[in-house]
């Protein structure tokens, strides 16, 4: 009898289950029948459906309900370029100087160099020069509150300088999964709330802002390159030239394309620089949380 009881029990539980299964399926059936297919497809996007205005979209239509600018209502980014340029005449002058220097000297040199040196070796050099600036990234990640990234960048520096033969190879990324992650002082200052200041075009160095120029100076303080330059200016300058030519040889034609696709090259570069830097700061700002040390409710994480 006891075995019979055991047999009897599951059916009762199953009956309840089947009934609920039925109910769910029935509800699903009703829904799937009642929902027009396009509605169902839209509902998958995670947006409430029911908007049929997609076809009537016209911000500058008859009733012109939009703000001053079509970008003002953009749901991704309604910022207008806010980069002041009080030095515009001077900046335009140096922009032209740099432009000439590029077309007359840098580009032909880099092209010749690219013909002689195979790409794999040039990539090695790029890694080497990038490795030299690692200390600045270690510090800046730390200043940005990105302790993990700072540690990773430090480990990369140690591994690549030793096993990677002075940074020519990148075993840290290849074998240890520690990927390169950029960080500079201009970005750190931006995250701290420093504004751009204004636009500056430096001769030879190119586009920058007041904030990013200060950042560049700060970063160079802890760059091995700077110490080399201080010890022997010629060696330092040779390394700087080598880095510039090598980097250029890996992006031949990119500058020409930007200039050719521009209606006003100076403004194209200025705006691209501003957007690029702004994105670098904003993308980190969202990650940066207020220092956990000061939050009593959260245990400080040693990561």
């Amino acid at each position: 009898m006891s075995t019979r009881g055991d047999i009897e029990k599951p059916p009762r539980r199953l009956r309840v289950r089947t009934r609920s299964v039925w109910l769910v399926l029935f509800a699903g059936l009703i829904c799937s029948l009642a929902t027009p297919p396009s509605f169902a497809a839209v509902a998958d996007f995670g947006v409430e459906a029911g908007n049929e205005q997609g076809g009537n979209y016209d911000p500058f239509g008859v009733d012109d309900p939009w703000g001053y600018d079509p970008w003002d209502d953009d749901p991704w980014d309604n910022e207008r370029p806010g980069l002041a340029d009080p030095l515009e005449p001077l900046n335009r002058f140096f922009f032209r100087v740099n432009d000439r220097l590029y077309f007359w000297i840098l580009d032909p040199t880099a092209r010749g160099y690219a013909k002689v040196v195979p790409e794999d070796i040039r990539l090695c050099f790029r890694r080497f020069f990038r490795n030299l600036t690692a200390p600045a990234r270690v510090v800046n990640h730390l200043l940005q509150g990105q302790i993990k990234a700072s540690g990773s960048e430090l480990a990369r520096f140690v591994l690549n300088t030793t096993i990677g033969i002075g940074g020519l190879a990148d075993p840290a990324a290849g074998s240890f999964g520690l990927e390169h992650r950029s960080a500079d002082l201009g970005q750190t200052l931006g995250i701290y709330g420093f504004g751009d200041g204004f636009y500056i075009v430096w001769p030879l160095l190119g586009p920058s802002t007041l904030r990013d120029s200060l950042g560049m100076m700060g970063d160079s303080m802890i760059s091995p390159l700077r110490h080399l330059m201080a010890a022997d200016l010629r060696v330092g300058a040779a390394i700087y030239v080598g880095r510039t030519v090598n980097a250029e040889s890996l992006r031949l034609g990119e500058y020409e394309e930007i200039i050719r696709a521009a209606v006003d090259p100076y403004l194209a570069i200025r705006n691209a620089y501003w957007q690029f830097r702004r994105n670098k700061i904003l993308s980190r700002s969202r990650v940066l949380v207020s220092p956990t040390v000061f939050n009593e409710n959260v245990d400080f994480e040693y990561n």
Partner: peptide, 24 residues
């Protein structure tokens, strides 16, 4: 990489007149 092409053109076009833009 964070640079909107259309916004970039917008900035370039702003200071120039309609006819100048067409010409360029």
């Amino acid at each position: 990489e964070g640079v909107s092409l259309v916004r970039n053109f917008r900035t370039q076009f702003e200071p120039h007149s309609f006819n100048e833009l067409i010409r360029r």
